[in-house]
């Protein structure tokens, strides 16, 4: 249930903190009641006296009693959030925005392409698809991280990899330590799986440059661009379409996105500093 007034945060206590990598952690909140959301939506998380930040929901939409966010500590608020411990109380506003087209993608093949912490906003869609696995054809996850130490959800990826109904391919930009897996950018994985371009829906989340190159690679493989969806990030203050911060060309990321058909943003993604 969203808070009474969309500008007013709803207090939620922290149930669990899961360290994911050296700079990324997941926070599981107890909203006190069901918190239904659609895969790809985000919340505004407020930490008392520190500030507020837009974070995608990274948990399972089929389990609305738990509310999970995966956070990389890169700014003043997210660095503050790193100090959270169970029992602490966060303010939550949301859920906001349009999610992944998991419903319209049903019946066809699915490809998830994630870069870095971009796996977090895709994870709810993966959960949803796995929970409704029969409704989808082949399902592929391509994931690229900077180094082996930056790989998110390692155990989960192992579990997913062990499934017969999900193909998982992981690559890193820089192989370090005992890494025996693939080295290279995530676009290099696109040749790995077998997919039927005409019936495949692709959901991409990662840095913009990665999403552009992924799209270009998919187009080379004759995947219709209208089957491609991306999630975009911009500065956000209100999340309601009122503060103006998240504009990207004519769109407001908060209310028109954060998930968009690639085609609707293509021309603006090609221009610097829109």
């Amino acid at each position: 249930m969203p808070s009474a007034h969309p500008m007013v945060p709803l207090p939620c206590s922290v149930r669990r903190i899961q360290r994911e990598t050296h700079d990324t952690f997941s926070v599981e909140l107890s909203p006190g009641h069901e918190f239904p959301f659609v895969a790809g939506q985000f919340n505004m998380l407020y930490w008392f006296g520190v500030g507020e930040v837009a974070i995608s929901i990274s948990g399972d939409p089929t389990k609305p009693g738990r509310l999970t966010h995966t956070i990389r500590s890169v700014g003043s608020v997210t660095q503050g959030l790193q100090k959270l411990k169970p029992g602490d109380v966060l303010g939550v506003r949301g859920p906001f925005g349009k999610g992944w087209p998991v419903e319209t993608a049903a019946g066809g093949d699915l490809m998830f392409v994630a870069g870095g912490v971009g796996l977090a906003p895709l994870r709810p869609a993966i959960y949803y698809v796995l929970a409704n696995r029969k409704r989808y054809g082949r399902v592929v996850l391509l994931y690229g991280a900077r180094t082996p130490a930056d790989i998110l959800y390692k155990q989960e990826l192992e579990r997913w990899r062990a499934r017969f109904d999900l193909q998982v391919h992981v690559t890193v930009d820089h192989g370090t330590g005992g890494w025996q897996g693939r080295v290279g950018v995530v676009t290099s994985l696109i040749s790995k799986p077998d997919f039927d371009p005409g019936s495949t829906t692709v959901m991409i989340c990662g840095p913009e440059v990665m999403m552009r190159f992924t799209e270009a690679e998919l187009e080379k493989r004759e995947l219709p661009p209208q089957n491609i969806y991306i999630s975009v990030e911009r500065n956000m203050k209100c999340a309601l379409g009122l503060c103006g911060h998240c504009q990207f060309g004519p769109t407001f990321i908060c209310k028109d996105g954060p998930v968009f058909p690639y085609e609707s943003l293509r021309r603006f993604l090609a221009i610097r500093e829109v």
Binding site: A4, H5, M7, V8, P9, L10, P11, S13, F48, G87, D88, V89, L90, G91
Partner: peptide
């Protein structure tokens, strides 16, 4: 001013 929040016994009370 949009709201005020008070810290109360480890919890948070937000007043619109």
């Amino acid at each position: 001013r949009l709201w005020q929040a008070m810290r109360k016994e480890g919890s948070l009370e937000v007043q619109e």
